[in-house]
């Protein structure tokens, strides 16, 4: 039953894509290096009429082999472009294509996170530069799939709600003056596509601030971001700020806050002896 619905949905999406392909074949713009049937639909959905270019300066990294289709590590790095206004990540063949949008006010155009994949798909990142051009990078991710239609691990635990919002993390000062932080927020990130009728329930916004309140980056997330979102970002903390504050909100209006110490002492490496030698 679940397969049938999913197949129908994907079929509909693919057919729409095909229809659009013929309709927009004359729209111009460079052809998709990943040769995806969904490209024209993706272009229209995310860029509209804006101009775009496929650009190796936007790097998307995924592992060569996947084991857990609900937790695929992805790193998007557009630092080679310099100043970026917006960074959008999407997967052409996922049932929900939009994965996240990052607005790096005072942050590097860089984000690592984990992705659910429903089937093998292109995974792309598009960076909008000040001149209004989208720079698109991407890879084709081979996958067995099923990550979007499987229930969250939390759904196996009757008391999962007690830990929602629990956050762990750490920050490091980098030599280039940026502060890197990694954090993980407990949240089921339900897609609403599983067979057990659990509705969509996910963190939709993450605001990263300096300790004094200045917003450094905003991340809007969608269903394909994995359960217990685990992100890595780099921000430029205002002088004097010694902590990063992260305020998140899910689509039910729950709010979660975290404060990650980001002084130089917290950046000390606790390396095992064997590595230090």
């Amino acid at each position: 039953m679940r397969m049938t619905t999913l197949t129908t949905r994907l079929l509909a999406v693919v057919l729409t894509g095909l229809a659009l392909t013929s309709a927009t074949a004359h729209a111009g713009g460079p052809p998709d290096p990943l040769d995806s049937v969904m490209w024209d639909e993706m272009r229209e959905q995310f860029f509209g009429d804006a101009s775009y270019t496929f650009d190796g300066a936007v790097k998307v990294s995924v592992p060569k082999v996947l084991e857990n289709q609900a937790q695929v590590p992805v790193t998007v790095d557009a630092r080679a472009l310099g100043k970026v206004k917006k960074l959008v990540v999407f997967s052409d063949l996922n049932p929900v294509q939009h994965t996240l949008t990052m607005t790096p006010f005072e942050a590097a155009p860089f984000i690592s996170f984990r992705l659910k994949v429903e089937q093998a798909t292109p995974v792309r990142a598009a960076a909008l530069t000040e001149d209004g051009v989208w720079h698109v990078g991407g890879v084709f991710l081979d996958a067995a799939g099923g990550g979007c239609s499987s229930p969250a691990m939390a759904r196996n635990k009757p008391d999962w709600a007690l830990t929602v919002g629990n956050t762990k993390g750490r920050a490091w000062r980098q030599a280039d003056g940026m502060s890197r932080f990694r954090m993980s927020i407990k949240h089921p990130m339900d897609t609403g596509l599983t067979q057990d009728n659990i509705p969509a329930f996910y963190i939709e916004q993450v605001l990263v601030r300096g300790a004094s309140g200045k917003v450094l980056a905003k991340v809007e997330m969608r269903e394909p971001v994995s359960e217990d979102p685990t992100i890595t970002m780099m921000v430029r903390l205002p002088v004097g700020d010694r902590a990063i504050r992260v305020d998140s909100r899910d689509i039910d209006g729950n709010q979660f806050s975290a404060r990650i110490k980001a002084g130089w002492t917290e950046s000390r490496l606790n390396l095992p002896q064997a590595v230090a030698e």
């Binding site: 084991e67 289709q69 609900a70 937790q71 067995a144 239609s149 499987s150 229930p151 691990m153």
Partner: peptide, 13 residues
């Protein structure tokens, strides 16, 4: 899904 996540190779479909 726990079994799957612990799996050698995880296919959820």
């Amino acid at each position: 899904s726990e079994a799957r996540t612990n799996g050698l190779i995880d296919t959820r479909i």
